[in-house]
Simulated assay, not measured.
Amino acid sequence: MNAHRYSAVELDAIYRVIAERRDMRHFRPDPVAPEILQRLLAAAHAAPSVGYMQPWRFIRVVDSTLRREIHAVVEAERRRTADALNERSDEFMQLKVEGVRECGELLVVALTEGRENYVFGRRTLPEMDLASAACAIQNLWLTARAEGLGMGWVSLFDPERLAELLDIPAGALPIAILCLGHVDAFYDRPMLAEQGWAERMAVTDLVGIDGWPETRSES
């Protein structure tokens, strides 16, 4: 018996929130209660980080004009992405890819400046600052789902333009626009799977033994 193991009820809750987390695109405009938002941000800040560098910075966007400008940045990149997708362009344009205008709370996540000074764990893998910030975002995502709130990660934007809008210092890098808020319902499956864009791969195809995994297409 493992004395460190959580109870069955606690384990069920953990696995449930992982299974039911969704990248949400449809929101109600109701505000997020301040005490819940603080709990979510605290959960994000409890994430692991390489060398304990804590490279994440969160910016709350509360000004309505600024929100509209951010949406314009996202829309411009959406159209550029559609152009780059060639034969799937029309299909992509039919997808709802963000909820910037509708969500109750809009957050921008950025990597802080001065990251090059952190060598611990990053000498050969400098991108571990990004991996660390992604862990913080995932913490926020899972706790948001547990609180009954939806969250969507938007990556369609020009980082330089977004940094300019938010007065982000030189050397820092915005990596995510997070739409957070109340929803009418959570998708039964990931939205892109429901709409036929892609399907989740089988975990057995992604795990190798003593070497690179062999996928069905390779076997």
Rank of each mutant, 00 (worst) to 15 (best):
A76K: 09
M24V: 14
N2D: 13
E77K: 15
A84R: 11
R115H: 02
L106Q: 01
Y6R: 07
A43I: 07
S64N: 15
D63N: 13
L40H: 04
R28A: 09
L37F: 04
L125I: 06
R88G: 05
L130Q: 03
A42G: 01
F120E: 09
E91V: 11
R80H: 13
D12H: 08
P34L: 14
R88H: 14
R25H: 03
G121T: 02
A3H: 12
V17F: 05
L107D: 02
L125D: 05
A131T: 09
N86P: 02
A82D: 15
L107N: 01
V119S: 03
Q38L: 04
S89D: 10
E87H: 10
L130G: 00
R68I: 14
E69Y: 04
G104D: 02
L11P: 00
A33S: 12
Q94A: 08
F58L: 00
E69W: 06
R123M: 04
D30P: 03
A76I: 07
L107Q: 05
P29Y: 11
V100Q: 06
H4Y: 13
L130R: 09
E77V: 13
V100I: 08
E98I: 00
F58Y: 01
R5Q: 12
E75M: 07
A8W: 11
D83K: 07
R68F: 02
A8E: 14
A43L: 08
A44M: 08
S132G: 13
L37P: 00
S7T: 11
D129M: 12
E20M: 13
H4S: 11
F92E: 11
L95F: 05
V97L: 09
G99Y: 06
H26D: 08
